[in-house]
Design a protein around this nucleic acid. Structure first.
Lengths: 114, 114
DNA sequence: AAAGAATATTCCTGTAAAGGAATATTTAAA
DNA sequence: TTTAAATATTCCTTTACAGGAATATTCTTT
């Protein structure tokens, strides 16, 4: 991670970087939904909804639960937690802690979490 | 935002959803860099580096400062702060607060910030 | 068993975007 | 004022991917 390897799930990020899929994610905040419900509420055709959900599923953003005829999709927490810790790690950048050694050492003292 | 409008900067998100640009962002954590330095350290050709930096710049992820012959790029904080508040707002989802009315009302009481 | 619902998949097409190479532009240096 | 360095831009080609339409698949219902 101190190499060029980003501490973030690029698959999940790419999946979210598409308006319809972002809308699906926003919709799923309310709770799990079936494909049909998602398609209807977002004005998508069923095949497109399925395709987008597949991308979200493959990248771990959502998970599926089979219920007979239907597939119930819901958000997974893991990618969001990962994203959160990645974003949080930028706090160091804004706080320009490396201006002098004093600040740097002081920062090492304070805890990083939250 | 309670409509389908995501509380996140999609332009910035899309910009980051490209490996080279993500690497540029990771690199700029260390501090501002010129185009040439970025290109060299990431093994990119100069034109590609410029193009990626333009995308990052247009989407507000980075900002430029002209220094004579060179352009010094550095990260902007705003999009990351936006990301952070967006991703934080998912905490509600994982904590399944809407299971029953009691929890729901209790949640309304507690403060949302942080 | 047949018909219908819900979902996934396939094939096709159009388009956005990334890389390569060349060149334009701006500023410094000689 | 010519040359070189740093960066941006343009043009071209290729590729990834999203949408449309049709169809396959799976399960329920009758």
């Amino acid at each position: 991670m101190s190499d060029g390897n980003p501490g973030i799930d690029m698959a999940a990020l790419s999946a979210l970087a598409e308006p319809n899929r972002m809308q699906i994610v926003e919709l799923l905040r309310e709770g799990p939904l079936t494909v049909g419900e998602i398609a209807e509420r977002l004005g998508l055709r069923q095949p497109q909804a399925s395709k987008h959900l597949k991308v979200l599923s493959d990248s771990g953003v959502v998970e599926v639960k089979a219920d007979a005829n239907r597939r119930i999709y819901k958000l997974r927490s893991e990618p969001f937690l990962t994203f959160q810790s990645w974003v949080k790690s930028f706090r160091h950048v804004w706080e320009e802690r490396f201006d002098n050694l004093d600040n740097y050492l002081r920062e090492l003292q304070s805890k990083d979490n939250q």
